[in-house]
């Protein structure tokens, strides 16, 4: 059998076995999707958008490292972590979309910057662009996965069955991501002078965005039993980070209060200057060719 191109030889006459392109089934098909009766569905949607956007934007940033990491194994690692987070984002945006009557693609690709509810930590440029390097990306991944792991371990008890199931499923993935980042932080922090310097610089770069992770959001109070109060997470996350710092010789940077505009930050749709560029790249194809499939 001869083929004109490599794709054809892979596919033969049957492409149903291959997972690529568009046309995936909706992420929550067949899952029990009852909403708890004690809270407003709109609040659940708002909360799912926050957690979904965190994962989506973090996945986009991690995917930027594909083919640009220091070694091939790290290309694969960061892309795999991105894929796990993208999976979490699909589930969470689909859940939000049940209330908002929009599908996951429309939420990911057709919202403008002010409609995104992610924290600033996930959107800033930590490399491979000019905003950082591998050490900075590891610093962000360490903080992000430590925080999200603490959040998901509590979210397992949520009164919303979908949130509880997403948390239970995502927990082990996040534990693996956190261990990966922590082991790199120790290797770099306790390595050469240069690796230590760059790992420490990475921490200094991301630290101003840590405080926002623990700010209470009004929707959490309205979702008693469903959402996790952000302030509750601080001591567990700090304990994990301290353990990494003491094993690696890294120094905890000085705390910086969350930068806000008129009292608003990422959860309110007010983002840093990096966000517009990120969305331009992420949404370009979908907006240029509406409904494109391949």
């Amino acid at each position: 059998m001869s083929f004109d191109n490599a794709y054809e030889s892979l596919l033969g006459h049957e492409d149903a076995h291959w997972a690529f392109g568009t046309g995936f089934a909706e992420a929550l098909v067949g899952v029990n999707r009852e909403f708890p009766s004690t809270v407003d569905r709109a609040d659940i949607a708002a909360y799912c958008l926050m957690l979904g956007d965190d994962a989506l934007i973090m996945a986009q940033r991690l995917a930027e490292w594909c083919s640009r990491a220091p070694e091939l194994e790290e290309d694969i690692a960061l892309s795999n972590i991105a894929l796990d987070l993208l999976g979490q984002a699909r589930l969470l945006l689909t859940r939000a979309g049940e209330v908002l009557e929009r599908d996951e693609d429309s939420l990911a690709f057709l919202r403008d910057e002010r409609e995104f509810r992610n924290v600033h930590l996930v959107e800033i440029d930590c490399g491979p662009g000019p905003g950082g390097d591998f050490g900075t990306t590891i610093a962000r991944l360490l903080v992000f996965s430590s925080w999200r792991l603490a959040l998901f371990s509590r979210l397992r008890g949520s009164a919303d069955p979908v949130l509880a199931a997403i948390a239970e499923k995502g927990l082990k993935e996040l534990a693996y991501h956190r261990d990966h980042a922590a082991q790199w932080a120790v290797r770099l922090g306790d390595g050469t002078d240069e690796s230590h310097r760059r790992m420490q610089a990475g921490l200094e770069r991301v630290w101003p965005f840590v405080d926002e992770l623990f700010l209470a959001h009004p929707v959490e109070a309205k979702l008693s039993g469903v959402a996790v109060p952000s302030a509750e997470l601080r001591s567990e996350v700090e304990g994990v980070l301290e353990a990494v710092f003491s094993a690696s010789g890294l120094t905890r940077p000085a705390d910086v209060p969350t930068a806000r505009v008129a009292g608003m930050a990422g959860r309110d749709g007010v983002h840093t200057e990096a966000m517009g560029f990120l969305l331009a790249e992420m949404q370009h194809l979908h907006r240029s060719l509406p409904g494109a499939t391949w």
């Binding site: 098909v29 067949g30 979908v162 199931a165 499923k169 082990k172």
Partner: peptide, 8 residues
């Protein structure tokens, strides 16, 4: 075909 997320 249904998807079950839980137990994970």
């Amino acid at each position: 075909v249904r998807t079950a997320l839980s137990p994970a």
